[in-house]
């Protein structure tokens, strides 16, 4: 039996690929600078540094797990699936909202002029009440989500077979079905930071998912909800949400499409 082999002369080799093939792991020492807050101990949040040696190809979540398991068990954060599906470990890493489980350490590590890795800062997502360390109160976020009625609204009897939809009709809202409700977009929005009354990008994305679904009949109700004083018109198109989305949803575009629908469907 023959095994397929890589033609060494044809494929260019990088140092990283060499290391991966030989099984060698080049460990580096990094500092995690985590903004910690314990309401039972101190009224202020403090930055705490943790040093550890990691494989740069690991994820930030792996490093945080190692801190909790090996250095300080009181470190509190949310994570469930750890594979970018559940959306529970959104946090502010080096000042940008990302999922800790989808961010590789090598992508957030920069070297200073002495060749030493700069600290990676990790803090809770902004604009929501911090309960402890990296855990925030998500209630306002989910309240906004519920307010846009993120479920299928139809009239008449349900069909006995599935509701058929053309490929073209699916593509109309396909992008916004990818949302995992991690709150990375909403908590990166400066308008939401102000007073938290704005619906926020995530709620609008999930409204978009049904407004542009040909099987749904509740579009007019949802548009009316988002026509609110705190609805889509507060969007300033700063694109923070689009930059923050770990699923690559074109969030700002979705918000603009809802705005356009509000105008064109009525006049």
């Amino acid at each position: 039996m023959s095994t397929p082999t890589i033609d060494d002369t044809a494929t260019p080799h990088s140092a990283a690929l060499d290391a991966a093939e030989s099984g060698e792991v080049e460990l580096i020492t990094i500092t995690l600078r985590i903004r910690r807050f314990n309401p039972e101990e101190h009224p202020d949040a403090v930055w705490v540094d943790y040093q550890l040696t990691v494989d740069p190809k690991e994820r930030v979540l792996d490093a945080i797990n190692r801190v909790k398991w090996e250095q300080d068990g009181t470190l509190t954060y949310r994570r469930s699936c750890a594979h970018g599906v559940c959306g529970s470990d959104a946090m502010r890493i080096n000042g940008k909202n990302r999922l800790a489980c989808k961010t590789l350490i090598k992508d957030v590590t920069a070297l200073d002029k002495n060749g030493v890795a700069k600290p990676i800062t990790i803090e809770a997502i902004k604009g929501m009440t911090v309960l402890k360390d990296l855990v925030v109160d998500m209630d306002p976020f989910f309240q906004a989500y519920r307010d846009v009625m993120p479920f299928l609204i139809t009239t008449g009897n349900a069909p006995t077979r599935e509701r058929i939809q053309s490929e073209e009709d699916v593509q109309r809202f396909e992008d916004t079905t990818k949302c995992i409700l991690c709150a990375a977009c909403t908590s990166s929005c400066p308008v939401f930071w102000n007073d938290g009354q704005y619906f926020g990008p995530a709620a609008i994305v999930n409204a978009h998912r049904f407004i542009f679904d040909s099987r749904d009949e509740g579009a007019e109700q949802r548009l009316e909800i988002l026509n609110d004083r705190e609805g889509v018109w507060r969007c300033r198109t700063t694109f923070n949400c689009t930059d923050a989305c770990p699923r690559g949803i074109e969030v700002t575009k979705a918000i603009q499409e809802v705005k356009r629908a509000l105008i064109t469907r009525r006049y």
Binding site: D44, M128, T129, D147, Q197, N227
Partner: peptide, 24 residues
């Protein structure tokens, strides 16, 4: 201790809705 005051969506945020199109 609370790190930041709760920025809650109030009842009026979703309930009492302005029926006007002023913002639009």
């Amino acid at each position: 201790f609370l790190i930041e005051p709760p920025r809650k969506r109030t009842k009026t945020t979703s309930g009492r809705r302005s029926r006007t199109n002023f913002e639009m």
